[in-house]
Write a protein that binds this DNA or RNA. Sequence first.
DNA 1: GTTCTAACA
DNA 2: TGTTAGTA
Length: 137
Amino acid sequence: MGDDIRRNMALFPIGIVMKLTDLTARQIRYYEQHELVIPARTGGNQRLYSFNDVERLLEIKDLIEKGVNIAGIKQVLLPVSKDSEDATILNEQTEVKRRELTDSQLHKMLKQQLLGGGKRPGQVSLIQGELSRFFKK
DNA sequence: GTTCTAACA
DNA sequence: TGTTAGTA
């Protein structure tokens, strides 16, 4: 996948990104404070966003519109810690390991459902219900 | 003219 | 989040 370099090239300033995403500069900068997007900087400290950054912001916008708050978006977009991913830490009791493994799987499901533009009535329950156990701790 | 940081109605 | 102040 050599296109990555192009997709990750920081090209446009916040003004362009605002029009591309329909987000305010305030929101874009706010999401950056929460590490949801990490744009590059010019010598003059100006933010420069790549195509990937814009796509990420569009995902964030999607989640916001679906009623997910920053804490929730972090759970979905931020890299999953290696710990919860393999959940095979020594000393942990099997019960705990099973729970974390389930969380890992649930996390993937939620990400799919939240990002995959699907909005069937049935899956809303999962978002309103099961999701809480993520944002709580 | 545009963007940046910081702060507050 | 909106918006404004003072810069770069």
